[in-house]
């Protein structure tokens, strides 16, 4: 009997040196999408202790809850409470996304040049969906000088190529 081994999407990735900030890849972590059913938002919010509005990043009951589009949140981490399924659709997204951290005094300026939306208005912490040169991205601002950029697993090479130039 075989045992399947994991392969990181960043296994052979060479991250570019940047000026004014650094880029590193995050280890894979558990990501669960939480999509409340129509009319269930309040019940879900009560159960979870909160639900992020567009652009919001919340920390509730130790869960890192991030707005991820439409009426949708991503929970980063393992500790979702039980019994959510009556109020929302849960879907495992862990393997679909790769996260990168862009950190440093120059991080905002670098991203601001590349993203087609006004980064000056982005809260810290905050979340935004956008595109980076046609790559769909989830951008999280964790601190004023620290961003996480989440991209589809299949596109990590393109992302690294794009962030270089």
């Amino acid at each position: 009997m075989i045992r399947l081994k994991e392969t990181s999407a960043g296994a052979k990735l060479r991250l570019p040196p940047l000026t004014g900030c650094t880029l590193r890849m995050l280890p894979q972590m558990r990501i669960t999408s939480i999509a409340p059913y129509s009319g269930q938002a309040d019940a879900l919010r009560a159960r979870l202790g909160g639900f992020p509005a567009p652009g919001e990043v919340l920390k509730v009951q130790g869960i890192d809850l991030v707005w991820a589009g439409g009426d949708l949140a991503f929970a980063f981490g393992d500790d979702l409470p039980d019994g959510l399924g009556a109020h929302c659709a849960l879907s495992d997204q862990s393997d679909g996304w790769c996260g990168f951290v862009l950190q440093g005094a120059g991080a905002e300026a670098l991203l601001a040049r590349r993203l087609p939306f006004d980064l000056r208005n982005m809260a810290s912490p905050g979340s935004a969906r956008s595109v980076l040169d046609h790559l769909p991205v989830l951008v999280l601002r964790r601190a004023s000088d620290r961003f996480e950029i989440w991209v589809w697993r299949s596109m990590v090479q393109s992302f690294v190529q794009q962030i270089r130039t």
Binding site: C88, D95, G96, R153
Partner: peptide, 15 residues
Amino acid sequence: CADWQLRLISVTETW
């Protein structure tokens, strides 16, 4: 069908 109880999400990248 905004008031129907269902949600959809892409899992193309997940599997």
